[in-house]
Amino acid sequence: MAKKMTLALFSGSVDKLTAAGVILGGAAAEDMDVEIFVLLQAAFAFKKENAMTNDRVAEITDKKDEFLASLKRLEAPHWTEAFRKAKEMTNVKIHICGFAGKVWGGEKLDDFIDLADDIVGIGEYVDAAENSDINLFI
């Protein structure tokens, strides 16, 4: 039986989303079942109009340009690409928190990038976290 990971994804910043993508890659290599709950600021990053243009960083903000240049030099995939690859390789479900979506004007699933599977309430996160082997908040 596959191990389960839940990821409460709060951050809408490229640095933390990139880290989440790397962790997702590790989970995919292990064939883990992953459930991602897109909360508040992360819902901003998942909006169709923001996903590819958002370049905010959460940490070491004075080194943002150096960080983004390093990602490019290292040919690190954009976080959306890392998430997509993980979805192709293992069972990853991405849930948009309904409240978070509304905060950023996202009422329908179609308002978000196609990585998102559905819009849910927080009860689904609590249920999934209760039954997961690894639970992360990023």
Binding site: V22, G25, G26, A28, A29, L74, E75, A76, P77, K85, M89
Partner: peptide
Amino acid sequence: RGTACPGPLLAVKQ
């Protein structure tokens, strides 16, 4: 070569 973690591991798995 040239891909960053976790690229090589995922390439191996595939």
